[in-house]
């Protein structure tokens, strides 16, 4: 793995901007983490179903509109009226 190029690519995917200094600092650390995770290669589990958490039943509530009493925009900083302000999309 070309660490620096890969890290730069991952940063662009996850919209992270890191400095050259950070890149140098993180390169070995990230390589080390991925190498540790490669331990997963040492076991084959081809017939096993992956499970996250199991639920016995999946209870959905009735499909009725409920009004929330919370004003979710109460503390939003960059607002104009009921609109939230964002950066320009080009």
């Amino acid at each position: 793995m070309d660490s620096r190029e890969t890290i730069k690519y991952l940063c662009s995917l996850s919209k992270l901007e890191i400095t050259e200094e950070e890149l140098v600092k993180y390169e070995l650390q990230i390589e080390g983490i991925i190498k540790y995770l490669d331990k997963l290669d040492s076991i084959t589990l081809s017939d096993i179903e992956p499970i996250s958490q199991e639920r016995n039943s999946y209870q959905l509530r009735e499909d009725n509109a409920k009004s929330s009493r919370t004003d979710l925009l109460e503390y939003t900083i960059n607002k104009e009226g009921r609109f939230i302000k964002g950066a320009r999309i080009t």
């Binding site: 991952l10 996850s14 992270l16 890191i18 995770l37 320009r88 999309i89």
Partner: peptide, 24 residues
């Protein structure tokens, strides 16, 4: 700011450990 640039600049406010975890 343009969207991507704003986004990336904001997200530089994460600490080192958080950034590493996002990357991996």
């Amino acid at each position: 700011y343009e969207w991507n640039a704003y986004f990336a600049k904001i997200r530089s406010n994460f600490g080192d450990e958080v950034k590493r975890r996002i990357i991996v």
